[in-house]
Design a protein around this nucleic acid. Structure first.
Lengths: 354, 354
DNA sequence: CTGAAAGCGCTTACAG
DNA sequence: CTGAAAGCGCTTACAG
């Protein structure tokens, strides 16, 4: 194995010299160009071996204008679990298509720091941009102000409101809220409350709206009063449930904005001596790995976050290729629906023992 | 706001031309060199504004040999949750010190793919390397084969076995296993079983060893028989517990390798009519956000993974600066202990109702 | 304090 | 199929 240690960088020029050919020819070999004799190719490859030559990606990028790097803007905050899982999906997918991910974290949402972030990524000449982070309040206002077409590269927004011309890959959270509520209705429940995630979040807002819609459709608008706001975490499940019971002592079902909060709800119900689902049916969202093992096992809605991240990445690579007039890699050859859907997963917390 | 759209890249040369100075002077201005008249500086800065000039990080890197990029090799696998949380910690910390993270995923552990991975990162001239991924079986054998000093940049290994000269930041999982077991012993339990993570994992092995050590110290070596292997996930907790009860029907305590598996154990105990902790004391590891809300609330051991990731990053930046003879950024100015420690968090699953 | 030159390591046209 | 030249956009010495 060659020894390209700290000594001195081996360059294409060195290889060319040793092989007795031009730099251009060496370049052709490392880029798998067809216009090279087998003889020449082999000779060059041997010299590459011998010298332990590794082309500098940096130099290549500078001269070719292509970086095979995708910039990821994340804003983790409390959503770190989801972000984390999503990261893994993105890394894998990027890798398969030959891209690396350059990850930067947005620490605040001022237009200034957004601008700085974008400039930084532009400076590094990323081929495309993934905007991955929860949409908090008006954090995406800049998307309106900005002329996205002025970005020198395509961008895909993940799990946030669709805006203007920016591509977006997101779950249909309105539908999720509606479906969860409809399930509770189908069980004959009439007093259905909701504990939502933080209302500054787009995702939480939509789930609330879906819940309300289902209630209206069922002719139970009064239930819309049975509402409490949480923060996605287990700790707000219990207080949320108590609040709901204050508002409606006869509450018979609750749709909880996340499985983690639902854990808190189950815990509190147990403490209060409420039987689940006999007295209170509970359904969450996420279908966390834990949910099947809660007491009782929790009904929920699957949400395949890694799949969303992967889909976003494939879409982005499509856009990158489109702009450059290059063919698509096989993985993103066909267009996919940018809207992701949840699916009901029913367990004891709504169905009871089977 | 300047309009640097897809048109044409604005370069340092353009600025120099407009300002009527040399490129070198513009370079000085953007690098905050002191040897520039205020007058010149202001003039240049204005031209930069007007043209919307953004220096190319790529060009800078190529000519300066410094990329301010840290390569992260991850191998997610089932440990995605932990990896995800760790990612966020790393991204944040890197950002604060002016580095970006370039993330690559290792898909298999053959020496070849490890070599390819390292070459790739070297090609991209990352300033340093983080090896972040669970140590599976002999996956780190290459660390022995490789002469780490031949790497052109420093590397820090996260949460894996200490090897040779490579810096390592990791939890003391042996101590964790011992402490958890000692806690159960202190409650007067005499038949203490263990359900471990996959034994191909270094972390799991150490926790098992710590448990055994504590049993030996307590003069209860026979308990070492009460053992089952799981996979960290909730689904293996129940089967693990049943296995333990086969081996020792009078089992009175169990140390579970992860809180997620412990959830499965609690679920199964509930099903079997075993009271926790009266009949069976249960303690996990991780102190997951869910643990305080399990039924009953789970005793555990905190494990601050983001903190570990951040510490690893700080250490790496220290090493980078050392090699280059540069001063340390404030954040990593002082050396830190590379060994991280768990802490007991006691709840009802071992202590009972207070 | 400022500038002209050379160079970082590759790729892109353009010839032959 | 192969090569000599120019260029990607900066920075690093070296002069003045």
């Amino acid at each position: 194995m060659a020894n390209n240690s700290a000594d001195k960088r081996v360059t294409l020029t060195d290889v060319a010299k040793l092989a007795g050919v031009s730099k251009q020819t060496v370049s052709r070999v490392i880029n798998d160009s067809e216009h090279v004799t087998d003889e020449t190719r082999i000779k060059v490859q041997q010299c590459i071996e011998v010298l332990g030559f590794r082309p500098s990606a940096l130099a290549r990028q500078l001269s070719s204008g292509r970086s095979y790097t995708i910039g990821v803007v994340s804003c983790g905050g409390l959503g770190y679990l989801v972000s984390g899982v999503a990261y893994v999906g993105m890394v894998r997918q990027a890798d398969k298509m030959g891209y690396a991910l350059l990850i930067k974290e947005l620490t605040d949402f001022s237009p200034g720091s957004v601008r700085t972030m974008l400039d930084y990524l532009i400076e590094r000449q990323v081929d495309g941009l993934i905007w991955a982070g929860p949409e908090m309040g008006d954090s995406h206002v800049w998307l309106n102000d900005f002329d996205l077409d002025s970005l020198p590269m395509p961008m895909v927004v993940v799990n946030a409101r669709q805006r203007g011309k920016a591509d977006t890959v997101a779950f249909d959270n309105f539908e999720a809220g509606r479906m969860a509520t409809q399930h509770l209705l189908s069980l004959g429940r009439k007093r259905i409350g909701h504990i939502s995630g933080p209302m500054s979040r787009w995702v939480a807002q939509l789930r609330v709206a879906g819940w309300q819609k289902a209630l209206d459709e069922a002719g139970l608008p009064e239930c819309k009063e049975y509402y409490a706001e949480g923060d996605w975490e287990p700790g707000t499940g219990g207080p949320g449930l108590r609040r709901l019971l204050e508002l409606c002592p006869k509450l018979d079902a609750v749709f909880v904005g996340s499985d983690r909060m639902a854990l808190g709800v189950l815990h509190e119900a147990h403490r209060l001596g409420l039987r689940v689902p006999e007295d209170l049916a509970v359904i969450g969202v996420d279908d966390a790995p834990e949910s099947a093992f809660m007491i009782p096992p929790l009904s929920s809605m699957t949400q395949d976050t890694p799949a969303m991240a992967e889909r976003a990445l494939r879409l982005l690579v499509r856009r990158i290729c489109e702009r450059r007039g290059e063919p698509y890699p096989a993985l993103c050859a066909q267009a996919e629906d940018p809207v992701m859907h949840h699916q009901l997963v029913l367990r004891e917390s709504t169905l009871g023992k089977s």
